[in-house]
Design a protein around this nucleic acid. Sequence first.
DNA 1: ACCTGAACACCGTTCAAGT
DNA 2: ACCTGAACACCGTTCAAGT
Lengths: 215, 215
Amino acid sequence: MAERRQRRDLTYDEVVDRAIEIAQAEGERGLTMRGLADACQVTPMALYHHVENKEALLTAIVDRVVSDAIGDFGATDVDWRVDLTEFFSRFRQGFLDHPTAAQVYLRRPVLSPAMARCTELLFAAFERAGLAGDQLAEATDATVLLAIGSVANDLTRPNEIRRELLEHLDADGTRLSASIDVYSERDGDQRFRRSLGWLLDGLLEDMLGESAAGT
Amino acid sequence: MAERRQRRDLTYDEVVDRAIEIAQAEGERGLTMRGLADACQVTPMALYHHVENKEALLTAIVDRVVSDAIGDFGATDVDWRVDLTEFFSRFRQGFLDHPTAAQVYLRRPVLSPAMARCTELLFAAFERAGLAGDQLAEATDATVLLAIGSVANDLTRPNEIRRELLEHLDADGTRLSASIDVYSERDGDQRFRRSLGWLLDGLLEDMLGESAAGT
DNA sequence: ACCTGAACACCGTTCAAGT
DNA sequence: ACCTGAACACCGTTCAAGT
């Protein structure tokens, strides 16, 4: 670091870029303001000129990740249900590809443009489904709960971890043991799509009183 | 701290008790090994004799919280669906009452006796519903996703926070604005129960091919 | 076995100063 | 405006030593 000179060309975007790189390589604990400063070839305190504090930096990371994940996603001419599922699948995968961003999203609200856009897309999809008024917020709410849970679960619980849970069961607990092999082949995305399908079936049946289209 | 003497009566249970008290009062960031040591009237390093490290302590906290929350819960003679909903409601509430435990549960797998017992209870409920084989793990999986998501959402997103999201919407995004008032009256437990009902409806319809009992 | 005291290797951030 | 350098007030944990 002895050869560090003043560089007045550091930008906000570069700081966020480097932060995402470090987070990908080292995880959230590995992303420190000091380490990030080194990567930017700058003193720790120089970062505070571009970013308010570490939490603001983390918000920027989540916004970037979500924005990249959903891309230019918009309504297509196919089934709203296909669109909605595709949207959530992208949303999910973006977070699974960026665990640090996911951890932040799971820990606190993230108020950002990309996040607001997600909400609009969901409302639009449910409007196309024929929902209206309070139903829109309720349907969005329910499906978002499932998506959040799916991200949290798939990010932190590898399939094999359930075997370790068996060690905490006493003799009379054998139901999980009998089903333990199911978890080895568990596919997170497929599991989410099926669960979302069930939730939509039940929700539409209740709200629209019609037998909804199958999964 | 000058009047701290050696006390050889400190127990594991007392350490966990004090830790939960501090976590309740100060939050997860406020729970430090040094602060916990003070509360136990002991030197920081004395704690490491009773607990392997901080992560092990957090696991103990989650186990205690979950164990207390589900209590002596078991199958009753009423509808399995009532039982299942009641179980999840307790599980949910336990975590909402103990945010620190919830944060740990959302961040990493928690392998403990109480957690294993939860899985057994869920499998048992779905057995009573008439499911068998792979269906048991799949139904448990789907409902757990929803429960995890509900905990994460209700713990970290106060109802009013959605209004702040509006500031990140540009002019053409007005769908959330139109529904924003729905979130003010949002009741987390009720919202979870309804969503769980929808998920169970869709799931049973698909797995058992019958029109399931209403919510 | 149970505990103390000092130290190590970190954190995020404030403050004062340079250009 | 943009950056440096030193310092503050913390962390979890290791290590060596006491009883």
